[in-house]
Nucleic acid binder design. Sequence first.
DNA 1: TATGAATGAGGTTTCATTCAT
DNA 2: GATGAATGAAACCTCATTCAT
Lengths: 209, 209, 209, 209
Amino acid sequence: MTKATNTTRSEPQWSSRKEEIVDRAFEIALESGFAGLRMRLLAERVGVTEGALYRHFSNKEAILLALAARIEGRLLVPIRKIASGAEDSPREKLEKILRHHVRTLIETRSLPLLLVGEASFSEHEELRLRMGGIISSYQSILSTLVGQVGGQGEGELEPREMALLLMGLPAAVALSHPLLPDEKLESRLVDYVVPEYVRLLLPGERRSV
Amino acid sequence: MTKATNTTRSEPQWSSRKEEIVDRAFEIALESGFAGLRMRLLAERVGVTEGALYRHFSNKEAILLALAARIEGRLLVPIRKIASGAEDSPREKLEKILRHHVRTLIETRSLPLLLVGEASFSEHEELRLRMGGIISSYQSILSTLVGQVGGQGEGELEPREMALLLMGLPAAVALSHPLLPDEKLESRLVDYVVPEYVRLLLPGERRSV
Amino acid sequence: MTKATNTTRSEPQWSSRKEEIVDRAFEIALESGFAGLRMRLLAERVGVTEGALYRHFSNKEAILLALAARIEGRLLVPIRKIASGAEDSPREKLEKILRHHVRTLIETRSLPLLLVGEASFSEHEELRLRMGGIISSYQSILSTLVGQVGGQGEGELEPREMALLLMGLPAAVALSHPLLPDEKLESRLVDYVVPEYVRLLLPGERRSV
Amino acid sequence: MTKATNTTRSEPQWSSRKEEIVDRAFEIALESGFAGLRMRLLAERVGVTEGALYRHFSNKEAILLALAARIEGRLLVPIRKIASGAEDSPREKLEKILRHHVRTLIETRSLPLLLVGEASFSEHEELRLRMGGIISSYQSILSTLVGQVGGQGEGELEPREMALLLMGLPAAVALSHPLLPDEKLESRLVDYVVPEYVRLLLPGERRSV
DNA sequence: TATGAATGAGGTTTCATTCAT
DNA sequence: GATGAATGAAACCTCATTCAT
């Protein structure tokens, strides 16, 4: 008899209002970007009045931060789990990470990375810091793994630089995919292009084999 | 026949006001992003009132389109010139293009690519199309050149996919640089990382050597 | 038969919650004035939710009225007691009253009189009436005492006018003290300036001496 | 044919919009106090939309400050002129000042001093400072004049304290008059009570005469 | 009694755009 | 070409109050 009981399929069972708000905010940002996230629209989607949103978040900024946290959860947390796994080699980890990243970007219409772009100019400092933190964490995970791969004998590119290159593929997908969706390419990206990319960038092991 | 041709006597230089408006718009977008471009602020910077802007552009969207055109001018036009040059090999051309792109991004705080991101969500359809056009042109230039390099014997990656990878480096720079500026990395990017990246991605030459 | 009488078993002390609410309301008004008294803040200070306040007071206005009553209690009740005392002369009573008033104003950051000002503009008619009643009572107490002092031979100023002048000192303190606190002056006010003021305004005794 | 030409009697000829806004704001504050001054109502009274107000004042606070300046103009400026006059004795100046002050308070329903009260709690720091400045200036004018009167042989009260007492009469009027208007008293205040008050407070000269 | 969520009206402010001059 | 005032819609946010539990 509680409100939570008469769930329809669109209400994931135990989502408190707070979570539901973030869910809907994510949806809207997916459609219209960070800047298109208006409190009025959000309230409508949630099915309450605007004032009600402020019971759960003190600010619009607080909602944006929760969104950032959610993105972190979808993107960074799985990546951290992959990186800390015990079974895979560093090279395999890198490959898995990139595949996860690219897949997520395609699923979310590149939202995560595009939000990084929007955050660069945001007036909300905390949001900017948070987004910078996500990028920074991501790159240091990649750097560490690159360092563990080793093997680029002549030591041409530093791990940090290699990490940047590895992030390049998701970045390129993020920027070009929403404007120029290409289903054929999309289907090959995760399973084919990513592994090949890793192979090209980190040829060390190949030689050693 | 270009728009700049129908100058009246009061515009001795080529429609100076119009150009100046776009100049200042570019400046502002550099500082505050697309969304931070307010008509009021723009008018102030130009040194006129808001109403005056509407003598030169019928819309804010018209100004955004002019901005897109300017970005095209700084980014795509030089790239086209490089691509159509007669002296360099395709590989050299690709390298030059990437160096130009990365250099421009660093100079412009990544504005061009970030604007692509913002445009993805824009409500102005024409702007979205134009930005899509820039990306698309860029990628087809890269694809063509990759095709001319040839040599990836087993034909693992298609030119279009390779083009995406090549665009990855600038994309990664665009996304990470504004939030996490890194001067040491920056100084090595253009002259060192880019050539190495091209060498890794297009190993054809290596065999031929 | 008073409202406080119908206590239920859950209110062992005399309607403690109600009292506490007014206490906290007084505190807040002391800090932020009448206008700064928000139901939300009040609830927080009391340690309950906003809805709970409406169990004890039907309105915000009801709380404001209770506040006015409390001010009456701190200001007017002691003054009435002084005025009805049997031992002092009318002149001594006036002096005691003014000293009490000034002391209270300093202790309460002038809240009582400033609230009078705010109440002048209040949309709550009952509150306005109540505040007017406080002022009015105060002045008639003063008038009566002034009449009892007698002695202004030529009958220049009527008691009511003299009462207004006597209220002038507290009023001036109320208006200037919160904006321009002056500790040196403050320490002399109660024990020195007030008696001197009474002596100057009611020179009757001087002649008799 | 300009808009200013078709003046009705209610438009004082050369009031720019900016001045008109302050005029209307003053009117509203007179009716409903500082807190009752809503941008919407103000815009209605001026006959424009809310947005238009922001062409002339960047803030609501800016309007409040303009209001404070206007009060300063009506109250403090004439008082300064009186104080710096060459013909009157200090005692006469004090009397004139108090008469001007009391008259103004009655005309303006005590707005100036009540605004001081409201400003004490205002969240607008600049407004608080400004109001404090007005009070402070006023008191130092009074103090100076009191010092010039001299003559309180035994030196009982310091000029600053005497200034506070002098301000007491206007203050009492301000606080009691709006809540308890009294026409009979009002008519005697300016011409009768004020001079008598000065005579009582500053008896020095009387002796010397 | 109390909670916690919600409402609805209203608050200040911003912004692209228009228009008479 | 340009100004300066104005508009109207929409933005974020606050607050007293209500109500099911």
